[in-house]
Design a protein around this nucleic acid. Structure first.
Lengths: 336, 336
DNA sequence: CTGAAAGCGCTTACAG
DNA sequence: CTGAAAGCGCTTACAG
């Protein structure tokens, strides 16, 4: 491994001068710069980032922890974060928590923290108390639907408004028994809380009953969960005429069950998802969904972190609200 | 930030003793260990990995570079690599190349290399010459279908055999005009080369013509590419009665086009994919596919890298062949 | 079983 | 505009 010292020796200058050239320091004579550059090229020198970072106290790495890479939403989001980070010369360390509290805690408490400058976390089970107990000092940016009483930056679309527009769309199509798939647990802060609230609010505003029998809990948010939830719903007393799913993977699982039971989408039951993953666009029946602006989410999260890292941000926690829109496809609108 | 020195001071011992305790060194008296541990707990000390790694010359990070995180195969694979790496206390830096040669070169040539101990790369456009020209000394493990004349570890299933079993399956079902979707470029080393060869070999073995009109090139391997390729095929002179796609996303795009044109799967055209992503299992018509053992691929790649990093591996490049199997679903077999 | 010193490769004040 | 020195936090021989 060739170091600054080797280059300095070769060029017959001090280490400092080489460092100046490497870092593009202004006041170096062209002749000197060229001489040093030649030595660099000849030796194939490349700076050791580990050493640089030890000295500067920063690593140039930010970590991104999502629940599940198998959910295309998070895979697509991760890609966007990697690109946004590259704009600021940051590299992304990726981790997945499985949505399990112990892993989320580990990540949040700074597991491997010395290796990264900051963390972007999309939590599922973490509670406000967990965040408040955090001792790790590096900046943390939260992503996603859960709301916390804790002083951290938080990037999330307006989930209530988005859910309401999805339900509104179904009501406008004449649907009256609109189920919600993917609720979880009792806590007022549960993951699906805001989307469920949007569902309830919009039904109420339309003068329709928000029937609890139409709310189906799931263990997780995968396709299998959606398939099972839909089956449970169909086995129940009153069949719904529409389904609003927590996310696209749940919706796709639900559509699988509908197809297996020989029910038509949207004629018998209309389906709306949430996330706008590409899979939904290519589904057997293309899926109507809420499309969050993933690029904006990624950009805002990275910008937030970078600002805090360069000390430019206020101490106030920032709340950013990227945009979203309803994308209507055949799962609600029928063939053109 | 609290350092070893702070802990040593607090405990009234030397830095070395603290280091011994932190690293679980054997020969420390229990009393001393307890005393130091108390100081560690009181101060909330955590080792600075950057410093440790500078000293040891290793970072504990391995990089994984895949073409596209938006392709669920790579997202699922990345998840498996992260888990396999965690078993060895390694963390994963994730990058995507977009399958573009310049980005692949950058990654392979050691962009940010000082930050990672080794690289797992799934190349698309890279050539053997690029690999031979690599100056970076850290270990590199290659993943995926492309074959290289270069001395690097390579993990890949037997693509020819897998492709043959897919085509065999279609022939056994009585199909005679079996198209291949997702060829690319002319080079004998092109990405789809092996699967295409498998297609050709199996047809020939069955005494069927391997008609070039049935081979459709695509720009990439996404759903959109598959949809366009299928449309081109249907617009051609002779309609096929089956399609073998380069991968599942291409197959899913093809199925979208078939549905749009009102063709029945598998009655009119049977479809087989490659990768066994979960999306295929939940597709409008569940997709028959080749299922590579992703966990084995991830484990073998990480093991390979870790072995080289600990100096235990022979200098011989290793070629590992994880298993695969054909998973038959409705896109070829029809409803049960 | 524990301590004092050197050094991993870099950058940051401080001189000149 | 360039150099010599100190130090980021750790581990690794080397003494004792």
């Amino acid at each position: 491994m060739v170091s600054l010292k080797d280059v300095a020796q070769r060029a017959g200058v001090s280490i400092k001068t080489v460092s100046n050239v490497v870092n593009g320091y202004q006041h170096v004579t062209p002749a000197m710069r060229e001489r040093v550059q030649r030595a660099i090229d000849e030796l194939g020198y490349r700076p050791n980032l580990t050493a640089r970072h030890l000295r500067k106290g920063r690593t140039g790495i930010i970590a991104l922890a999502v629940p599940e890479l198998g959910n295309p939403y998070f895979a697509e989001l991760a890609g966007a974060v990697i690109d946004a980070a590259a704009q600021h010369d940051y590299t992304v360390l990726l981790d997945h928590t499985g949505g399990r509290r112990d892993k989320e805690l580990l990540v949040c408490q700074g597991f491997r923290s010395h290796v990264m400058d900051g963390l972007i976390l999309s939590p599922i089970e973490l509670e406000s108390a967990d965040l408040l107990a955090r001792t790790e000092s590096s900046p943390l940016v939260l992503l996603g639907e859960r709301e916390y009483d804790a002083p951290f930056d938080h990037i999330a679309i307006d989930n209530v408004a988005a859910a309401r527009s999805a339900v509104r769309h179904l009501i406008d199509l004449g649907r009256r028994r609109i189920a919600f798939l993917g609720a979880r647990r009792e806590s007022a802060r549960e993951p699906a809380h805001l989307r469920l609230r949007g569902w309830r609010e919009e039904l109420t505003a339309a003068g329709l009953p928000a029937d609890d029998a139409l709310v189906v809990a799931t263990d997780g948010y995968g396709r299998e969960d959606g398939a099972r939830a839909m089956a449970a719903l169909l086995d129940g007393a009153d069949r719904p005429d529409a389904v609003f799913a927590y996310n696209d993977t749940v919706a796709i699982g639900a559509m699988r069950t509908l197809a297996d039971r020989g029910l038509r989408i949207p004629e018998d039951i209309a389906v709306v998802g949430f996330d706008d993953i590409e899979e939904g666009r290519f589904a057997g029946v293309p899926l109507t969904t809420i499309s969050p602006d993933k690029e904006a989410i990624a950009r805002l999260a990275v910008d937030c972190l970078v600002e805090r890292l360069s000390g430019g941000a206020s101490t106030e926690p920032r709340r950013a609200r990227p945009g979203h829109r309803l994308v209507v496809r055949e799962s609600t609108a029928g063939r053109a």
